[in-house]
Every structure is written in structure tokens, then in C-alpha cells.
């Protein structure tokens, strides 16, 4: 299945070359994959990820993705 992925802040370096923060790219995954497996497929060390949003909702690592889901992955961020 294919999911849409966006990487932000320091995680941008795991995106395909030339992608800016927030640019969508597509990733092919086995059916029933979860967020943790997507993160592994992207080669991102787990400790660098703080929050993952799927279609605008924060979801845990074990959350199973569906085809076409839009996943935004963030390192620790804060401001105000």
C-alpha cells in the first residue's frame, strides 16, 4: 500500500533529496503496517521521533496505517 509522508524540522534529512519540511512524498509499505514500521522503513532512529500525526490526529507507534493515509512525523518541538 502507499501512504503519504511529511517530515519536519530535524527529520527532514531522512526525506528524499530536495524535499522541504512539509513536502509530501509517497512511501510503499506492506499492507497493515503500523507507524513504527513506517519510521523504520524511512531509516529514522526511533529516539528522534516525538509525535506522529495521521490525518491530523496524533497516533501511537502501533497504530495501523491504511492506504492513502497522510502521516506527519515530528521530532521534539516546542515554542509559543
Amino acid at each position: 500500500m502507499e501512504v503519504k509522508v511529511k517530515l519536519f524540522a530535524t527529520l527532514q534529512r531522512y526525506a528524499p533529496d530536495g524535499q522541504m519540511a512539509g513536502d509530501v512524498f509517497r512511501v510503499e509499505l506492506p499492507e497493515q503496517s503500523n507507524i513504527g514500521e513506517l519510521i523504520a522503513a524511512l531509516g529514522i532512529p526511533n529516539r528522534e521521533v516525538k509525535v506522529a500525526y495521521v490525518n491530523g490526529r496524533a497516533r501511537a507507534e502501533v497504530y495501523r496505517l491504511k492506504p492513502g493515509d497522510e502521516v506527519g512525523i515530528f521530532p521534539p518541538v516546542g515554542g509559543g
Binding site: K6, F8, A9, A21, G22, V51, Y53, G56, R57, A58, G72, F74, V77, G78, G79, G80
Partner: peptide, 12 residues
């Protein structure tokens, strides 16, 4: 900077 929040608040 603090504007690091723009993307995450937008995503949510």
C-alpha cells in the same frame, strides 16, 4: 525558533 510550531499545529 518558536515558529517551529507552525507545522505541527497546522498538521493537528
Amino acid at each position: 525558533g518558536t515558529a517551529i510550531l507552525v507545522n505541527i499545529i497546522n498538521e493537528a
